[in-house]
Amino acid sequence: MKIPASETIRIAGKRRVYHACALLLAAWPAAAQKLPLGANPPGRTVLIIQSHHDDHTWEWGFGGFIAKLTGAGYTAYFVRTTNDEKDSAVGWGRGDEINHRESVAATRFLGVKDVISLNWRNDHMDSVPIKEVRENYILLIRKLRPDIVMTWNPWGHYDRNPDHRKVARAAGEAAWMAGLANVHPEHRAAGLEPHRVPFVYYTQRSDYGRGHAPNVAIELTEDHVRRKGEAFFAHNNVRGSPALAKSIRSRLDAQGLEIPELGGLTDEQAVEKLQKWSMESWSRQVGEQHGAKYAEVFYFRDEWDHLPGLAKYLRDNVVKR
């Protein structure tokens, strides 16, 4: 029996057939409650503020949602805060250069208009003052005036990465502080007016303990997931390691097992297939959990959520002009 690769991966042996996803992927956290499927917020511009070139393409990343928003007419800008110099096997300078180039290529699959690289030093953001990073973001927010910011969750648990933690807090603050005229009042001299970001989505790695508790699921189509997979693998410098395919295949081989769909492929070709399968499989598992074919889950901060005493009143009483 041939099982389509897009549905599952088959590992065939003399006595056993396994679903390879179980071997490839970390266990999905214990089934949480079914989340509401979120609609696209009204607006035109989305600013994705990330620490690293590939943050948006991971399982917990925003990739599918970015593709969905750009497909619906949003203009998207991607901020790569660090220089990713450590994330490669080719040395610092070249790693930075290649990762930046691949970041541009990857975000194109998702319809992103521009990648803005801030080039802070990779994995060293703990020692950067939050105000300095925050001002970078405030400038961009005032210039681009996004309706949506997507970033790491400032309240996420167990993220060992200093760049994720610093970016989360700096971006979380920038999203609302950019709306206060007395925050960097000098920006007005450059023609930049205050702008509070009305909608914010946070994400957090889900393989680190409790992570965070998402409150919304974003329904994705097969096309969104395919493009997220393309974007994921476009980070070839870090994703395309043939050693991954080689080690999986040799582990299976030792047990008398194989993945028929990978038969005849080189390790380079096999790793691409494995990475895209893993992305498809994750998106499908999350989708099934929340009543959609494919989905991503995030913590959504709605327009008035920062005013808990007024949120309901505003939702009930605001009218069109």
């Binding site: 009204p42 709306g179 509070r196 005013l307 009483n317 605001v318 009218v319 069109k320 002009r321």
Partner: peptide
């Protein structure tokens, strides 16, 4: 300031709060 920020956000999106 809080009231003005709410009003400005509503105005910029074609809405109003009668209050």
């Amino acid at each position: 300031a809080a009231a003005m920020r709410i009003r400005q956000r509503l105005e910029s999106t074609g809405r109003r709060l009668p209050l």
